[in-house]
């Protein structure tokens, strides 16, 4: 171990506490039976679709479009997931086949 056991434990505790705080903040602000303002309720309704859109981009943030393989594996695999899902609407099929296709593309097809 590069640092002492005590320091390692301290790092874990700090990381755990900070992570928990970021997740708990809204519940602390609107705790108890406090009336939730209409604007916050509205945000609660429209945020999930917006955040999920953001998370899709977040997952693809390291894709490099200007150098080999030009984001092609991601583009093809994402298109496959979308097409499969619109067609069959089967979560496991879309995710499983899309992931297998992506692995094949980066391990076999687009090898630098």
């Amino acid at each position: 171990m590069p640092i002492s056991i005590q320091m390692s434990l301290a790092v874990i505790v700090v990381v755990a506490v900070v992570t928990f705080i970021t997740r708990a903040i809204p519940f602390v602000i609107f705790r108890g039976g406090k009336e939730i303002p209409e604007t916050v309720r509205y945000l609660g309704r429209v945020l999930p679709p917006a955040v999920i859109g953001m998370l899709v981009v977040y997952c693809l943030k390291e894709v490099r479009v200007f150098s080999f393989p030009f984001g092609l594996p991601e583009l093809i695999a994402v298109a496959a997931v979308v097409a499969l899902h619109v067609w069959k609407r089967n979560n496991l099929l879309s995710i499983g086949a899309g992931t297998a296709l992506y692995m094949f593309l980066i391990q076999v097809v687009f090898v630098n």
């Binding site: 970021t22 997740r23 809204p26 519940f27 609107f30 916050v40 945000l43 945020l47």
Partner: peptide, 9 residues
């Protein structure tokens, strides 16, 4: 994550 809880209050 700060924003996630808003939808689950």
């Amino acid at each position: 994550h700060i924003f996630y809880g808003l939808s689950l209050l």
